[in-house]
Design a protein around this nucleic acid. Sequence first.
DNA 1: AATGAATGAGCCTTCATTCAT
DNA 2: TATGAATGAAGGCTCATTCAT
Lengths: 213, 213, 213, 213
Amino acid sequence: MMAEDAMETACRSGARAAAQRTRILQAAQKCFVEHGFHAASMATIAQTAEMSPGLIYRYFRSKSEIILAIIERQLEIVRERIGSLHVANDLAAGIADSFHAPTDCHDDMIIAPLFLETSAEATRDPQVGAAVAAVDTAVRTEFTRVLMRAREEGGYGLPEELATKRALMLLCLFEGLKVREAREPHLDHGLLESALGDILGLLLAPQSAEPAG
Amino acid sequence: MMAEDAMETACRSGARAAAQRTRILQAAQKCFVEHGFHAASMATIAQTAEMSPGLIYRYFRSKSEIILAIIERQLEIVRERIGSLHVANDLAAGIADSFHAPTDCHDDMIIAPLFLETSAEATRDPQVGAAVAAVDTAVRTEFTRVLMRAREEGGYGLPEELATKRALMLLCLFEGLKVREAREPHLDHGLLESALGDILGLLLAPQSAEPAG
Amino acid sequence: MMAEDAMETACRSGARAAAQRTRILQAAQKCFVEHGFHAASMATIAQTAEMSPGLIYRYFRSKSEIILAIIERQLEIVRERIGSLHVANDLAAGIADSFHAPTDCHDDMIIAPLFLETSAEATRDPQVGAAVAAVDTAVRTEFTRVLMRAREEGGYGLPEELATKRALMLLCLFEGLKVREAREPHLDHGLLESALGDILGLLLAPQSAEPAG
Amino acid sequence: MMAEDAMETACRSGARAAAQRTRILQAAQKCFVEHGFHAASMATIAQTAEMSPGLIYRYFRSKSEIILAIIERQLEIVRERIGSLHVANDLAAGIADSFHAPTDCHDDMIIAPLFLETSAEATRDPQVGAAVAAVDTAVRTEFTRVLMRAREEGGYGLPEELATKRALMLLCLFEGLKVREAREPHLDHGLLESALGDILGLLLAPQSAEPAG
DNA sequence: AATGAATGAGCCTTCATTCAT
DNA sequence: TATGAATGAAGGCTCATTCAT
């Protein structure tokens, strides 16, 4: 009721504030991975972030805003990854490795449970649905572009129609891997890598004559 | 007063009891799809089932038992579907169609949001994790078997190692489709069908000489 | 709404009805002893009485009416026991024996937990309080009368004032034994009997010269 | 901001926390006396304590923990009282006075309804049963010791066997008084005091020759 | 007379959020 | 900025009671 700088309604700015927000988001992500969006309580998040529950509300308006931020960050990671299709040499190995990576609070990974809950939430929350659809469309578009690009330019030289189909299937495949990560975490690493090698070989092979579907 | 001594699944037996259980499960499934496992309240489920909250507990011991029952039913559907790979003629079309099917309480469909939440839950609840892993392993095994079976016997005549890899990728692909269903519900139906046709053609093609990965 | 014999508002009459009431009361008593007045549910009582919950309400208007009936029966037993002071020979042994009697549904025993819960309830429910106080006063009066009666008439020949005091103390003693029964159920039987013999000897001894209080 | 690192009894520490715990326990005791352990609701307790229901759970894990705390406190009072037999002068008056003391939330009194419900609960809850039995045994032991102690040392000079019996009977008598307090709250004070004087005179009298039982 | 399915109020408990300090 | 005590609205679940059969 005294010094009350009421002009800062939303979030804060400045280096300190950013650090706090990051701290909270990392804690929240850890809790969400461990318990899910709903089962993770603000108290637990606060404890994990080693701060008081009240303080969190200085940086986020609500729990749902934190969830949105986490989802947004996950989408951001996807956006950052767009284009990694270039490096076709060890693609299978890279993807397979990220499969068995530890679920730590790595800030640059698509965490399977978060991905799944986000995808489910997309069917309920229009805001999430729109954001997710936008990113996915962008990814498919970029995938398609890379598949169409000439081989000598680091692409795969597929004709547009085929590239569009293959891009979609690639996306499904990668997302399916996230599902697999959650449902069968002890999946054999060697099998996974060679299976990926096989299918990527098929999908990205230079086109001469298509097999009859 | 009708067939009295029927299968005693859980708490009560009898035709009436079975009908009530079904009614509850359908209502619960609807609520879970709309709000998620944890956000759906027993009160909402009761209202959807057009009964009082207390009555539900005559047929299910707890909310979590209902969740488990729903999950178990979804897994059951998967089990029932194992082997549909045989019918390779319109496989792509069939899968694509089920993609755009209405999300009604149809009792024989794998509902995308439920599938995703279940997969996420598998990460946390060991009971769910075990059930899910068991089913998935069975599916992969059956997929592999079909891929290995001779063409004249309705199979695809793949050698074992390749069949194992392709089965895994097929599973990922199908699961990825469920993700897509949630994230991009308005995906173009024709594209999806032809993309599926293309990739299934690649994966299930008769083997003469493999393309170099 | 059809044949509705509305003239039977309260309980039923007839041999069958009485038997049912008894059956219910015995079941209720057993449940109350095991779980307490509040923790025992009507469903449990019904199950114990091997009848449906609904049927109970044909014979008792409410659970609280059953509780009252049980309390009333316990008081009745007390009333019936009034006057047993006559038989002074084996009084100590008799009391001590009833201490270690099995807690079965014996219909003619003062059950310790019921006695205690009833006494507690007496401080809350005026109806119970009044009934209990009435019985206790009667008991004290009768005790006093016996203590005053001449020895040759089966009494103890105490003067009125002393008899009044001793009657009160005897009542406390007996009630204290009920408490002991609940709190120290494995109390040594021999000790109890001889302790009772000792104190009864003191209290009921022929009066020549009183000790100075 | 005051004495910060105090005794950490349960969940929280600090002067404020202790005060809150006390506040809750006093409110709970009042409610338990008025309604009984099970009939008193957390909402009522919270209202009595003039706080929100949720806050109680900051200081107690559950209702049952509160009940246990109340019971434990009552037992503690008994422990503190052990040994008051010394002061034989006005013993009868003192006991009689405490009989008619107001039932306020005095923190150092054995409240009759609580005592009775606790005793009944001892029959059902093993934890309560054990605690109660332990205290009672201690009390009897101490009573016996005092009765055996030489008169010149503030005791009553009874031989061991007799002391054991009389100690048991004294305990019953005192407990019976608690029953009486609940069942006949308007019992004549003068009568009670003189009756106690009489019986204590008998039980604690110097031993020369026992009367024949 | 008898059943047991059904109701709905109320109970214990949790938790997102606020606010005095 | 930071705390954590406090709130109060649900949430899951139980149970006395009713009623169609």
